[in-house]
Design a protein around this nucleic acid. Structure first.
Lengths: 205, 205
DNA sequence: GTCTATGTATAAAA
DNA sequence: TTTTATACATAGAC
């Protein structure tokens, strides 16, 4: 988006050429009268606290308006969540209360493809490591915890992490299978990615 | 809010006066061609399919740009998910991979600042919560056994069976997640088929 | 995608 | 807050 200023400059240059080149200069000369107001928007954090707050309010309104317009005009599903630097929550979802629905959809899609992605990522690793026992061990921990806590009370995020962890474990298992099918030896040990157990209730962040 | 258009109109009128007034008349005569472009934005679904798609692309770009600007300029956390009517997914999260973080936060805040909406957050799901505990329980058994035996010596068939079992468990977990996300009650008992657990330590076949 | 006229958003000021 | 001037977004036409 080059913005209108650029277009205008172009236009003005033409005008200057054909009509009142000299007079148009006035616009530039008198810029002290028109005042140098805004400059281009810099894409960096606004340092002034007050200014930042004001801009946040305005831009937030604008953003939510745009989101609403997009969803209505174009019949799209839109979910928007904003936390102000002060921690306040603002949200928008195209249909009433469809925040969950939209994000369910969101998570479902990445999940289906995530497996392939992860497989790629882990294949080479697994070529020379004994990762299954590790993953199984982890699986055990997960299961243990899941049994002890009430799974039904897991928050969405916890459930999601739980799912991801099990998916990871499953991927390792699949890799192992592949290796076996391919007739490749699996011997030496090497560290599997050490993921903190985000599914754990007391897990730190 | 007169906008730049007004200023430009003014400028153009001057030009007409001093340079090409006659030529500009064409603009009025051919107004079907030059004038009456956009009208005000109507807040209703665009009926024309093509137009709707084009607008979707443009507005989506704009929206995401705004979202990015808000997050950077104002140091806010922003998560945005859009599904096009065609089902394509577009997403933005202020920090890398913070989509989950932001939504975890979103779901964890129901009472503090969040206003209405989250009424139905932790509802239902208790219709037949047995499915998860069961799958988790099974998961536990699997893990237990896998730990005790040497996974690396599993036969192909055993590995496959292992994989299948974990996959099933994962399916149940995903199911649970989706139900929760969609806010839907889980009606049927998860069809975790009862197969002979060849991998199970105590269930010999 | 590009262009241009126009509508909108918004930074700064009042 | 409201106003104003300006930057920016974008509809419609290529």
């Amino acid at each position: 988006m080059e913005g209108e200023d650029a277009a205008r400059r172009r236009r003005q240059q033409q005008q200057q050429g054909q009509a009142a080149a000299g007079e148009k200069e006035v616009g530039q000369v008198k810029e002290k009268k028109v005042k140098r107001k805004r400059g281009r928007v810099e894409l960096r954090r606004i340092e002034d606290r007050t200014s930042r707050q004001v801009r946040f309010s305005k831009r937030r309104s604008g953003l939510f308006k745009k989101a609403r317009e997009l969803s209505v005009l174009c019949d799209a599903e839109v979910a928007l969540v904003v936390f102000s630097p002060a921690g306040r929550l603002y949200e928008f979802a195209s249909s009433n209360s469809s925040m969950e629905k939209i994000f369910g959809r969101y998570w479902d899609i990445p999940n289906t493809t995530a497996q392939e992605t992860r497989v790629d990522r882990n294949i080479q690793i697994d070529l020379n490591e004994q990762s299954v026992p590790d993953s199984v061990s982890e699986l055990n921990d997960i299961a243990q915890w899941a049994l002890e806590s009430n799974v039904n009370e897991m928050s969405m995020a916890e459930l999601r992490c739980f799912e991801e962890t099990v998916t990871d474990a499953l991927t390792v298992i699949k890799n192992k299978l592949m290796m076996k099918v391919a007739g490749l030896p699996q011997k030496e040990r090497s560290p599997l990615k050490k993921r903190k157990n985000r599914w754990s209730p007391e897990s730190e962040e």
